[in-house]
Design a protein around this nucleic acid. Structure first.
Lengths: 349, 349
DNA sequence: TTGTACGCGTTATCAT
DNA sequence: ATGATAACGCGTACAA
């Protein structure tokens, strides 16, 4: 190819020389740190333009001791859910002049820890963790080096560490109550991974609502999913295979609901005419699924903004008080009154 | 709160002192640059452990002149499409020890340029641009400072710059041929943004296939979408409102197809019994939509890996030859033979 | 094998 | 207002 690649970048010193001023003057012009005569100002700016000079961020950070960045740790990047969070974070970090630094750890605790260490090694000003399975002690320990905000978890009040919990129990309870109010009493539930706190809480909310309505909780109507479409497909198939009786299905998240929906379709069961189906999360595509999915809406984008605002306050050493976010039920088109009360739908195949 | 936040981080020098060796020895142990006696080795490692020391990446990069990072520029982050690309890139960059640095520019050319400059200011070793609207001259100019790989575009052979084109024309042509082979002759097309090269190419492929089959291209069957669900909803509604005659609908991407599907549903039209529907991209959720969508598969994840491999070679100043990627048709369940040949479906409302 | 000293590109603290 | 000069934390010739 060509050997003239990546010529040594122009430095501040070279600009200073070319403009006939000291390097401090150039630095001052760059940062507006102090008054500089208009003459020199313009001379320097001309040279900068000519050489197409861009300050080296690394050197700048090393000297100033601040990086103006915040590390954002996601579990996965391949999820509509996380994408919305990131958008909120990015938007909200833009105004305070902070640059987000995204990394993902694929639901792997060891990697989660290693990523956080990488962030710290990069001297980020703060860290936002989305979900996260790291134990609270470790988090608190890391937080002594850099402020951390954890989205989706409730955390004890430690300096430099804040958790923004999401009230999954309330959301799941509301949804279950809603189904009951529509006349359903046999409500199946496709759960998420038992290792996932959100999944556990949603199952709990479902159970609580049943009990308060005097409906017996039956493990016969519970199936295990994995928060992904594939898990929904399989769980739904198992539910049908064992001829569980239900008139509605509550899925632990929207992706699970999509999977369940496909299996129902394969069995010739219509939604919502034959069976009602609901999800949880309200990912962006849920309003466009066919039919549009009734679900519990997490204000994902807004949560991202809140997390960003919180980390900014933490960085500025201002107090933060995060209140649990409540979730709203979004009524769309996958629920109707039970077709045949107290009779299970008959699988076609 | 508490004032003991972010205590000044431990430095290499302090480790050296505490271990009773020179700083260079610590550095050598950290990087394995030279042989060090086992005694000192262990002493230093003990101290590092004790102080929980983590080298400052900034200082390290500044001194070594290399950052071991690559900037990844996406147009948006809120898309299943980009998520898969990122996953491929991340996975593939992991092994060479490079850290990706994600930023998005929201389809804004000015921001795209500014982001690239930020990457360069951060002295990334290389840049991967996903799509990108920046003109080739600017890209070539940037490439003189840092190698760049652009995914989804064909680029002239400039040193340090490589484009990985995607054959959208072929993909769209194949899909159209497939529909024709199933007996369809009145095929509607919901296009993407005319500013988007991919969208233009897909429309072209559709047109070429029609012409080679001796079918008249009719603008009556073309509607404008926006590559998002909302655009698909509206475009489909317009198509129906104007009573355009068609037995199949080819959408410029999967998201558009989801929107169109919803409008069809609202009008009581079944897919594929009443009308066939196909998309383009094969985003991860397409195999789980109801019914699963017939579409053109882009090997998105694999493309991400290829881009990463390419930038690695570019960084190492090795030659790269990128060949256009061909796209495969994924036959699923949204296409059937036309129900009423040469008669348009009758909208219910 | 180990230590000294300098350089990386910038900011910040002094004088002037 | 401006300019030397010392950090910032680390890598690395060079010397020992």
């Amino acid at each position: 190819m060509n050997e003239s690649l990546t010529p040594p970048a122009v430095t501040l010193d070279e600009i200073a020389k070319a403009a006939g001023v000291s390097s401090s003057t150039v630095s001052r012009i760059l940062n507006g740190t102090a008054k500089v005569s208009r003459a020199k100002q313009q001379a320097v700016e001309a040279v900068i333009e000519k050489f197409n000079y861009r300050p080296n961020v690394l050197a700048r950070s090393l000297a100033s001791g601040k990086t103006e960045t915040v590390g954002v740790l996601t579990q996965t990047v391949a999820s509509p859910f996380y994408a919305e969070w990131l958008r909120g974070i990015e938007d909200s970090l833009h105004e305070p002049g902070l640059t987000p630094f995204f990394m993902s750890c694929r639901w792997n605790v060891a990697e989660e820890k290693s990523r956080i260490e990488q962030f710290i090694a990069r001297r980020v000003d703060g860290i936002i963790v989305l979900h996260g399975q790291l134990d609270e002690a470790s988090l608190a320990s890391f937080a002594r080096q850099t402020p951390i905000v954890v989205l989706g978890r409730s955390l004890n009040n430690v300096p430099g560490l804040a958790g923004l919990p999401i009230d999954n129990v309330q959301g799941a309870r509301d949804m279950t109550r809603y189904l009951i109010a529509q006349g359903h009493r046999k409500i199946a539930f496709i759960a998420g991974p038992t290792t996932h706190i959100d999944a556990v809480q949603r199952l709990l909310g479902y159970r609580l609502a049943l009990e308060e309505a005097g409906i017996r909780f039956s493990s016969q109507r519970i199936e295990q999913g994995d928060f992904l479409e594939a898990g929904g497909v399989d769980a739904m198939a198992r539910l049908l295979a064992r001829k569980a009786a239900f008139t509605a299905i509550f899925c632990a998240n929207d992706q699970t609901a999509y999977g369940a929906r496909l299996t129902l379709y394969r069995h010739g069961l219509r939604v919502p005419e034959d069976v009602s189906l609901v999800g949880f999360d309200d990912v962006p595509t849920s309003q466009y699924s066919t039919p549009p999915l009734t679900t519990i809406r997490q204000p994902i984008y807004e949560l991202g903004r809140q997390a960003a605002a919180a980390i900014v306050r933490l960085i500025r050493k201002e107090p933060v008080t995060l209140t649990p976010v409540s979730l709203d039920l979004i009524e769309r088109e996958t629920v109707s009154a039970p077709r045949l009360p107290s009779r299970s739908p008959v699988p076609v195949t």
